[in-house]
Design a binder for these strands. Structure first.
Ligand SMILES: [Mn+2]
Ligand SMILES: [Mn+2]
Ligand SMILES: [Zn+2]
Ligand SMILES: [Zn+2]
Lengths: 136, 136
DNA sequence: CTTTTACTGCAACTCGATTGCAAAGATTAC
DNA sequence: GTAATCTTTGCAATCGAGTTGCAGTAAAAG
């Protein structure tokens, strides 16, 4: 696992106090985090600073965002080597019972055969159901 | 193509003036519509009435909703025979140039192999890129 | 016809997201 | 070094999609 400093250096994002704690928090969580999740976890950091940090991270492919239908955008750290292009696509799983959203890096995504002349750029693939913990 | 009245009858949703015009509008559009799209198209129908109509339609599987990441939930009429369960899953395509979102009923969705003990209930699969019209 | 239930329109409100602005901090120019 | 410049941060205000309470109207039941 890389440290926050290493990741920011690789992605050419200047390191600051806020950026470090936001990235550290994201790295420490197994489930994708909303702005509010982060705000609650980092009690003394302003929401708009976190918000702008997340935008910066997303632009520079430090993290990616997930629209899981809960009404709050979630964020997760990109896998090592991820460039956020179609080859890095993966499913996200949203548990309808415990509200956790996470990246399914290990489930292969089949090649999507788009109609003639369509161009694939990105995708937001959210699979919903019960996670192993809730399906008992 | 079925008429609004036929669809509502099959789905056991009582027909009203608002419901008819909302469903007629959805049927007339090739792209999925947001609440605002519908509000703009139906100048004399109140937003909250349209909103509640959409909720009723969704509960009764007349339509399904799509979170395409644009910030506004989009709605599209279900295909004939659709029960909105996993077997009726299909991709949605969001064109990043013209902002249209539509159902890709003809692109098969491969079986998703979830991790051990996960249960699939639903999914929101949005593929983003350029539509044939914009990819020139 | 009367009672009950469902639908509609309007206004108010919620809440996640976003922005303007000034202060603080970091970087570059001299 | 200091001054000028650019970037980041915190705070408050704002935006806008979504949602709700409520009273009036329409439809269904008795
Ligand atoms: Mn992910
Ligand atoms: Mn669809
Ligand atoms: Zn769960
Ligand atoms: Zn297009």
């Amino acid at each position: 696992m890389q440290t926050e400093e290493e990741i920011l250096k690789i992605k050419k994002v200047k390191n600051t106090a806020v950026r470090t704690v936001v990235l550290r928090h994201l790295l420490s969580q197994e489930k994708a985090q909303s702005l509010k999740d982060i705000e609650n976890a980092l009690a003394y950091t302003d929401r708009s600073s976190i918000f702008r940090t997340l935008k910066t991270f997303e632009e520079n492919k430090v993290i990616h965002s997930i629209e899981d239908g809960s009404g709050m955008t979630k964020y997760a750290v990109c896998a090592k080597g991820c460039n956020c292009d179609p080859k890095d696509l993966h499913y996200h799983f949203y548990c309808t019972n415990c509200d956790k959203t996470f990246c399914l890096f290990d489930v292969p995504i089949p090649k999507i055969q788009l109609p003639e002349n369509f161009k694939l750029q990105q995708a937001n693939m959210v699979v919903k159901g019960l996670c192993d913990n809730c399906n008992k």
